[in-house]
Design a protein around this nucleic acid. Structure first.
Lengths: 144, 144
DNA sequence: CTGCTTGCAAATCTTTTGCATTGAA
DNA sequence: TTCAATGCAAAAGATTTGCAAGCAG
C-alpha cells in the first residue's frame, strides 16, 4: 500500500529526471499518512535529518511535479500529498482548534465546476474547496 | 452607492461598539472597489496615512466583524470586502495570465455545504471555492 | 568525475508585541 | 475624562539566497 506510493513517488522523480536523495525521501515520508501539515510541523519533524531550507526546496519541487499540494487553512497554508496519492477530497477546517476533517466529495462539486467552466470556455486544471467553521467539540466546549 | 457601503460599515462598527477611527476608515476605503489585494498592496497604498501595524490590526478586526474576507489566489492570500458589501461570489483564476473572473454561485455549493456540515455537526462560518485553470484567451494563444 | 542537492549562515520579508501617546465618545 | 486605538521600534516568524562541501548517477 504505502509501498505503492513510494514506488509512484520514485517513478515521478525519475520520469522528471530528478534525483532521489535522502532529503527528498524523508520529506516524502513526512507527508505520508498525515493530515495536512504546516511548514513548521514538517520542519520540526524533520529536524536532525533534513534542513529547513531543503524542506522548502523539496516541497516546492513536489508541488511543481504534482506530488504535493498546498491547502489554505485560515491565513496559513498546509501541505499534503496530492490526489495522486490520496483520494481527491476537501476539508472542513475548524477556526477554533484548527482540526481538519476530510469530506467526501459528493461529485456535486466536480459536476458544478464542469458546467461553469463550460460556460466560460475555461480549461480547468484544479480547484480549491474548503469549508471553515467550528467543529463539534469546539462548538460544545465553548458554547458558541 | 458607495455611500451605502460606507453607511453599512459605520453601522457594523457601532453595532459592535467599535470606534470609527481615521485609520479604520482609510483601511476600509482601500478595500472599496478593487480586486482582492495583498497585505503588502494595502500597506503600501496606505503608506503615509496608516501604519502597517494598524492595517494588520484593522484587517483582523474587519474579518472578525465580517466586513472583509481573505481569498487564496495563487497560493497567497488577498483581502477583499465580504459578501455584505459585494455579491457573494467565487472565482475562475487563470494560471497563465492571472486574470480573475467572478462566477455565479449557483446555489449548488451552498446546499452542498449545508448538507455536509450537517452530517459532521460542523458550524459553518464560511467557505473557499476557487477554480484554477486557463482562460479562453490563454488557451487560444498558447494552444495548450 | 560532474553537476545537482544539501546545509549553514545570513539576508529578506511578513506578522506580532510592548509601550507611551493620541484621539473618539 | 477615559479607555480603546495608533504609531514606532523592536521582536518573532517565515521564506529566500549565496556559497562551499557532499552525494547521486
Amino acid at each position: 500500500m504505502s509501498q505503492d506510493k513510494l514506488q509512484k513517488f520514485k517513478q515521478i522523480l525519475s520520469d522528471n529526471k530528478q534525483s532521489l536523495t535522502k532529503a527528498r525521501l524523508k520529506t516524502f515520508e513526512l507527508l505520508l499518512g498525515s493530515e495536512p501539515q504546516s511548514m513548521n510541523q514538517l520542519i520540526s519533524r524533520a529536524s536532525g535529518d533534513v534542513d529547513r531550507v531543503s524542506i522548502y526546496r523539496n516541497i516546492e519541487l513536489f508541488e511543481s511535479l504534482g506530488i504535493a499540494r498546498k491547502v489554505y487553512i485560515g491565513w496559513k497554508y498546509k501541505v499534503e500529498l496530492s490526489d495522486i496519492f490520496t483520494d481527491h477530497h476537501h476539508h472542513l477546517v475548524c477556526l477554533s482548534c484548527g482540526s481538519v476533517t476530510d469530506i467526501e466529495d459528493e461529485q456535486h462539486i466536480e459536476d458544478f465546476i464542469t458546467s461553469v467552466a463550460g460556460k466560460h470556455d475555461f480549461a480547468v486544471k484544479g480547484h480549491l474547496f474548503e469549508i471553515e467553521g467550528y467543529c463539534q467539540l469546539c462548538t460544545r466546549s465553548k458554547a458558541m
